[in-house]
Design a protein around this nucleic acid. Structure first.
Lengths: 161, 161
DNA sequence: GGTGAAAGGCCCTAGAG
DNA sequence: CTCTAGGGCCTTTCACC
């Protein structure tokens, strides 16, 4: 399905999404063309996407994490409605005390208020929506490739010097 | 602080983080060199980062969203401890029924279990941690530049054809 | 802040193992 | 799925506005 070379390519892109395929190829031992082909496969299958991520607080926006409880109708229908809203950047169905999670980005408080009261809470099936408003983002890093590379010694690096 | 040109550049990178600066320049009316300079400024200030984002479910990993309540000690100290853990990809302090949010990615259930019981719940000050395990990611898109470009007619696009 | 120009490297397609 | 090869585009750096 996905092999170790794919994982190595993903790791490099998680640190820097603009790293050139040539450079990645050199450090994983593949030609540039192969890295590109693998990347395109991964992208087509929805396994990876390279995007610019912004810090809501630094941009002066309001970031809100929503947890939603759904009653009487399928969770996927509510998810679809939420996904339609452009302010909603992330929607996932979950197991746990809530059925859905959604991440939201708004311009200001009145925009947030309109979104929550006029749209989110009026979606059929939304029984309860809990909102956590972001005050400060303390980590949003991809500096570690995740659990494959553990904290280890300070100074360790994934990327060649 | 950040002007409309910056926002336009950010919008393009949110759709495709690998879009060339030349192409961006053409569509926002700046030279390639200026787009690059602006991008680097935004990146240095932590406003944007271009990274590869993976879909936990499609990779066979387990994604968990944690909401944490902190007692007796400063939230920022707990945040710092959580940030040290490589499985933790995102940490933010919040207003609302919980004090902190953390997003976590684990290899499998035993890894998740070890992380939660041995590490997260043992951090000083963690009074309660609620976990939502991701079943399916239904939206993780940057196809809209956010609230600046509204859903509008189907077929509308941010990017030139 | 902004530009343009030159050198080098990168991206991309094609074609073949 | 991999590679090499090439033309064209992009990146990088510079000097200058």
């Amino acid at each position: 399905m996905i092999d170790d070379l794919d994982r190595q390519i993903i790791d490099q892109l998680r640190v820097d999404g603009r790293r050139s395929f040539g450079e990645i190829g050199r450090s994983v031992g593949l030609s540039e063309a192969s890295v590109r082909a693998r990347f395109q496969r991964l992208q087509r299958r929805g396994i990876i996407q390279v995007v610019g991520m912004t810090d809501a607080v630094k941009l002066g926006e309001i970031g809100v994490h929503l947890a939603v409880r759904v009653h009487h109708i399928p969770v996927s229908l509510v998810a679809r409605e939420l996904s339609r809203m452009p302010e909603v950047r992330y929607v996932a169905s979950c197991v746990g005390p809530y059925d859905l999670i959604a991440d939201v980005r708004c311009r200001d408080l009145s925009h947030l208020s309109e979104l929550l009261t006029e749209r989110v809470r009026r979606v059929n099936g939304v029984a309860h929506a809990e909102a956590l408003t972001v005050l400060d983002v303390l980590k949003d890093t991809y500096l570690w490739a995740g659990f494959r590379e553990l904290p280890a010694a300070p100074g360790d690096r994934i990327l060649p010097p």
